[in-house]
């Protein structure tokens, strides 16, 4: 094994090991752990991620790719960002939640009308929530079905929006609501 493969190198992508015992790069999470996270936290069926590969670029930035590729791989992007690890509470990305959050069966907070508009502006708000604190999927009804909006952090009676600055918008509360 070359040096390239034994440590995490910021400018290249390394494929996640299948399980923790397969780990060759210190601190790198496993594919199994990532899939378990989405299952445990949001009830997303592991089958949703069959056929995808998971990669790390930079410490703890996890990407999901629809195909496979040689590892390590020095490119600018490999699929889509999906998760940040290497911090106490793993944080799913807005893109991952918009793409895969529709499969979630728990820790989804439904916010409609003005609450959804507030969330998309990137603003925090006081809301009632009986479930776990931590990262939640914020969702609302649109086009006849529930749709994930993004990731919120629920603590102390408050839903904190984590919509990235570049995605924040001033949208009107939907007229149907």
């Amino acid at each position: 094994m070359s040096d390239d493969e034994s440590e995490n190198v910021g400018q290249q992508f390394g494929r996640l090991p299948a399980t923790d015992p397969d780990r060759e790069v210190e601190g790198r999470v496993s594919r199994e752990a990532v899939i378990e996270f989405f299952d445990d936290r949001f009830g997303i069926d592991p089958a949703v991620f069959e056929g995808y590969t998971f990669w790390e670029k930079g410490k703890g930035k996890i990407w999901i790719f629809a195909d496979d590729a040689p590892s390590p791989m020095a490119v600018e992007g490999l699929g889509m960002t999906v998760l940040r690890t290497r911090q106490e509470h793993w944080k799913p990305t807005q893109s991952a939640i918009q793409r895969f959050g529709g499969h979630a069966t728990k820790n989804v907070i439904e916010i409609d009308g003005e609450a959804a508009a507030t969330f998309v502006r990137g603003e925090d708000q006081e809301l009632d929530w009986d479930g776990d604190w931590g990262y939640l999927i914020a969702a609302h009804e649109v086009g006849g079905d529930r749709e994930p909006i993004g990731v919120g952090l629920y603590v102390y009676g408050e839903l904190r929006s984590t919509v990235p600055k570049g995605n924040q918008e001033s949208l009107s509360p939907r007229s149907a609501e």
């Binding site: 600018e76 992007g77 889509m80 893109s95």
Partner: peptide, 21 residues
Amino acid sequence: RLSSLRHNAERLGVTNLVVTK
């Protein structure tokens, strides 16, 4: 320009894209 490509691909939920420079 690559950064706008990455931003658009993320926004649209694309997972089969490899970005190269």
